[in-house]
Design a protein around this nucleic acid. Sequence first.
DNA 1: CTGAAAGCGCTTACAG
DNA 2: CTGAAAGCGCTTACAG
Lengths: 331, 331
Amino acid sequence: MSDASTPRRPTATDVARAAGVSRATVGFVLNQTPGKTISRSTSERVRDEAARLGYRPNGAARTLAGGRSRIVLLVLPDWPMEHTLRDYVEEAALVLEDAGYSLVTHTRRSDGRTRPLWESLHPDIVFGFAPFAPDEVASMRDCGIPKIFPDPARGEPFDISLAVSAGPRLQVQHLYDRGCRSLAYATWAPARPPFLAEARHRAAQAHAHSLGLPPLGLRNTDHRDGSADLAVREWRDTGVTGVAAFNDEVAAAAVGAAVRAGIRVPEELAVIGHDDTPLAAMFVPSLSSIHFSTTALGRFFADLALRELDGRPLPRREATENATLVRREST
Amino acid sequence: MSDASTPRRPTATDVARAAGVSRATVGFVLNQTPGKTISRSTSERVRDEAARLGYRPNGAARTLAGGRSRIVLLVLPDWPMEHTLRDYVEEAALVLEDAGYSLVTHTRRSDGRTRPLWESLHPDIVFGFAPFAPDEVASMRDCGIPKIFPDPARGEPFDISLAVSAGPRLQVQHLYDRGCRSLAYATWAPARPPFLAEARHRAAQAHAHSLGLPPLGLRNTDHRDGSADLAVREWRDTGVTGVAAFNDEVAAAAVGAAVRAGIRVPEELAVIGHDDTPLAAMFVPSLSSIHFSTTALGRFFADLALRELDGRPLPRREATENATLVRREST
DNA sequence: CTGAAAGCGCTTACAG
DNA sequence: CTGAAAGCGCTTACAG
């Protein structure tokens, strides 16, 4: 009945007819359904015909029939970690792909006026780096999203600092090694979701403690609202000589403010950033930073998502010690 | 048969039963199907029951039955324009949402090893800022993607510089106004997709020409490979006094190299960036830049996608003159 | 070891 | 003006 001139995309029925088997058998072969032992010759015939016809399963039909979409929706908060984020995501997507899932990313803004993507995409899991807001959780429940990570139902949420502690530890150790004994931690404006910043600060704090140093005071260091200028003056007046920054932008703001205030970097104030973004190498003076193996982190997060999907237990601790120090002019 | 304890998501059948109408009528009311005149009281009853039950149509079923997914897949290249990009996307998503579409973004890397998202998502259109590579087009065709933008089949591709000419024009005008008569254009490393850079360069070129200035030489200005250092020396030796940069990162690289080479900014070399990113305000000296109204551009792109989807003609020229000059220390 | 059949939740001609 | 029915392309018990 269909127009012969329309190059209709082949369906499983077409493959079945070409291979001389039933439609169901095609599904069993191509999905490697466990518990089905299809003869080798049949399998090969099906696979060959599928390849020859360029068969691709229809995602909507699979989702409808199977009750799952094989989509992992990764919600990215509005954070300043662009450069590294892409590498995480690419690596995570690879791991998930091997497991038969597609990774879709979704940048959700705090002031967002758009509807969340989980309303239309029906992902099997919504995965976030930070806990979701109560109204977001409610919306996901209404949409019938089967899994949420971090799971709001779980008493003790997964501690993301397990995955991010290596960098802050190196920052503190490096400042310590070059002789700084009074340290501070510089972070971004409080308007941004503070989840990752808190985790990194905690990790820095813990390492400082283990070195016998006093606690690191936390300061917002922004070049736009004058807080960076205030911070450097306070550090000078209170004898702080080393600053670990949440990321390279924060470090740049701190160094910029110090230079303008006549404070010599690194002689009077050493500052180290995090993420080793292009900005770090470009800034004058160039910024020491922490280079992160993004592939390891990407794999870590993908593994987390797959464990949730399969109902397997989450890891208690993480050995992603793939951070390395990049020393430049600012320390 | 289903477990009563499972809070099953309501379907159109549930709504139909609750409202005392047929399943089809529910669809007609909720989709406002043209050509169907449902009585007002019936419509209201259906809508009320749908709201009461918290009904949400199943996307997979709609896609399967309707033959379209109502998904717009926006392919973002691996470009350094993060800060502004998010605002574009948010605004475009809003416009598309009003038209019943969901916007999904997909960052496709040149060296990407992951499978493209259009294989699993079945979008109604794949929308890119730059033309797609031949193998990408072939892959989309195989997947049965009905629309591609920019359309590879169309003889003359849509000229994206229609949308981006205002910024470069302002850059050149500003340098001209402060007395620079020998200008150059600084761009990013050639490894990056040069599409947007070319469009901006063309626009700058055109405006310089209209001012009676000689053509702007194009230089890659990267802080990593030494090209920035080479460029500033060449500019000094050839009497270039004003540089329009592709974006703020490029401008930062140029200014950084100039400072290191002992060239005074802006007295000997004025540099203006583009996008007005945080980096521009933070850099020492702070960078003049172009602030772009991202909402206008987002709406422009959404309109483009909707025209393609509906088969309506594309606009021939664009009046998105929403760029403004932000003057700082570097000019 | 393999296949016939029901069903997922919609849309859309078609018939009244 | 409204509804009964077929069908989209899969998955998955179930029966042989």
